[in-house]
Nucleic acid binder design. Sequence first.
DNA 1: AATGTCATGTAACTAGTTACATGATTTA
DNA 2: TAAATCATGTAACTAGTTACATGACATT
Lengths: 185, 185
Amino acid sequence: MEERSILGFALLGLLEKQPMSGYDLRKIFASSAMGSFSDSPGAIYPALGRLEKRGLIRGALEGSSSLRRRRVYRITPKGMAAFKAWLRKPVTRDDVIRHSNHLMLRFAFMDQSLGAEHAVRFLNEFADEVAGYLPSLRQYLEMHGSGMPFSGRLAVEFGMQEYKTLLRWARKSIALYERRRRNET
Amino acid sequence: MEERSILGFALLGLLEKQPMSGYDLRKIFASSAMGSFSDSPGAIYPALGRLEKRGLIRGALEGSSSLRRRRVYRITPKGMAAFKAWLRKPVTRDDVIRHSNHLMLRFAFMDQSLGAEHAVRFLNEFADEVAGYLPSLRQYLEMHGSGMPFSGRLAVEFGMQEYKTLLRWARKSIALYERRRRNET
DNA sequence: AATGTCATGTAACTAGTTACATGATTTA
DNA sequence: TAAATCATGTAACTAGTTACATGACATT
């Protein structure tokens, strides 16, 4: 019962927090901040259908018959399990290079679903993997930079800045978790 | 003759610089730095086929018959025109939010294909659009931040850092172009 | 009465992933 | 001669985009 689309997991994460209709979910994606998701009905409704078919969520028509038909979905225990398994996957180099948005989405849901301790562990993995990748990018720029057009070099330079920002953010976030933990006890 | 996949444009851009085989292109994508592209044959070869069918590139079997069969593609005038039209598209808010990698790819090829002047103009557009978007993200965080889990808040915070990095980078790059121009004259 | 928003859906098209297949040439 | 690499391709599956369709209810 593998769910492979990132959209599916985003939906699971939102439904874990609170049962909602497809329309509610679309509104969340439309009001941005959830970045890279489409709010088009052609993406959301089929995705919900797939999740339901796999038993990860279950929809029910809401309220009395005179109301607008409104299908409210809630996550099932099986869906919870699948979602948490996704959150728990190890951080790979490939994720860092090609799917850093997936990693960020997982993190965003992490302490809601698995708790702060796990979130910190995740950030450490994330930071380590980024720190390991940065030197190879730097090396690439040194090796191939001279043969590239100026704008190409600048684009790679931006890539490095991005990963540096990510690393700074991860470390700072770890520190913030630490401070929060101390203040709570 | 619309080409809508970003992979198609990446291929056009690389082939504009130098005719190559599918295998060469795969190697480029495999040796990272071109970030988010897959080097899988199932992506590259069909994409090349589509481009050829649309007349944007043309492949020819290379060398004598005893050689390994190796299809070398080169960009056609029609392909050049389509590629430049893509580069010249205006920078939209939607691009900034959901497709900043497209924008970065366009920029990477920009002064090779359209010249430095156009690259600077593009960076200005880009920077303006980002600067216009940032406040709304900040506002979102202020409005909804308190209702979000801690890791969610941190994730949005990272988004903001990312856009700030982008803005800094764009402005610095504009300055570098300026300096370069002065040194050349 | 007309327009706007709520709410869900579907069909056609395009494209990427994974996995498999094939055969030539080079290196150990 | 076995293994690695060069080189190209295809098939099945999954998913997203765009555009269209439908109807209930609310607002002006």
